[in-house]
Simulated scan of single mutants.
Amino acid sequence: MSSPLHHIIIGSGSAGFGAAMTLRSRDKNCRITMITMDSLPFYNRYDLPRVFRGHHDWRELLAMPPSYYDELNITLRRSSKVVDVDGARQIVSLAHQEDVAYDRLLVCAGGRSYLPENISQSADLMHGFGSFEAAMRLYQALPAGGRAIMIGGDMIGIDLALTLLDTGYKVTLITNQQTFWPHAVSKDEIPPLLRALAKKGMEIIEDARPVAVSASGKKGAGRRVTMEDKRKIDGDVVMSFCGLSSSVEFMLGAGVDIERGLLVNTELQTNNKTIWAAGDVCQIWHDEEKVYKFYHGWKNVRIMGELAARNMSGAHDIFDVDIKDRLDIDAKGNLRSTFWTH
Results as ranks from 00 to 15, higher is better:
residue 83 V to R: 03
residue 84 D to P: 04
residue 38 D to W: 05
residue 157 G to W: 04
residue 316 H to I: 09
residue 26 R to M: 08
residue 174 I to N: 07
residue 70 D to E: 12
residue 34 M to V: 14
residue 278 A to Q: 00
residue 180 F to V: 11
residue 27 D to H: 05
residue 4 P to Q: 07
residue 192 P to E: 13
residue 263 L to Q: 09
residue 242 C to Q: 07
residue 104 R to I: 14
residue 229 D to V: 10
residue 277 A to L: 01
residue 185 V to R: 11
residue 155 M to H: 02
residue 108 C to K: 01
residue 261 G to L: 02
residue 97 Q to R: 11
residue 48 L to V: 05
residue 251 M to P: 02
residue 306 E to P: 03
residue 275 I to G: 02
residue 136 M to Q: 04
residue 266 T to Q: 14
residue 144 A to S: 12
residue 90 Q to K: 11
residue 220 G to W: 05
residue 131 S to V: 06
residue 19 A to W: 08
residue 86 D to S: 03
residue 159 D to I: 08
residue 311 N to F: 00
residue 209 R to H: 12
residue 134 A to W: 03
residue 210 P to K: 01
residue 234 D to T: 07
residue 96 H to A: 15
residue 179 T to K: 08
residue 295 Y to M: 04
residue 304 M to D: 00
residue 153 G to C: 08
residue 227 M to L: 12
residue 174 I to A: 07
residue 57 D to R: 06
residue 157 G to E: 04
residue 281 V to S: 02
residue 146 G to D: 04
residue 304 M to H: 03
residue 256 V to D: 06
residue 226 T to C: 04
residue 255 G to N: 00
residue 170 K to M: 15
residue 13 G to Q: 02
residue 1 M to E: 12
residue 336 R to G: 03
residue 56 H to I: 10
residue 190 I to V: 15
residue 103 D to K: 01
residue 10 I to T: 06
residue 260 R to M: 08
residue 53 R to V: 09
residue 172 T to A: 06
residue 74 I to L: 01
residue 306 E to W: 02
residue 6 H to I: 08
residue 173 L to S: 04
residue 31 R to K: 15
residue 281 V to D: 02
residue 4 P to E: 05
residue 138 L to H: 04
residue 329 I to H: 09
residue 336 R to W: 03
residue 280 D to S: 05
residue 43 Y to L: 03
residue 164 L to G: 01
residue 178 Q to C: 11
residue 342 H to A: 13
residue 86 D to T: 03
residue 84 D to R: 14
residue 319 F to P: 06
residue 42 F to G: 07
residue 313 S to Y: 07
residue 317 D to L: 00
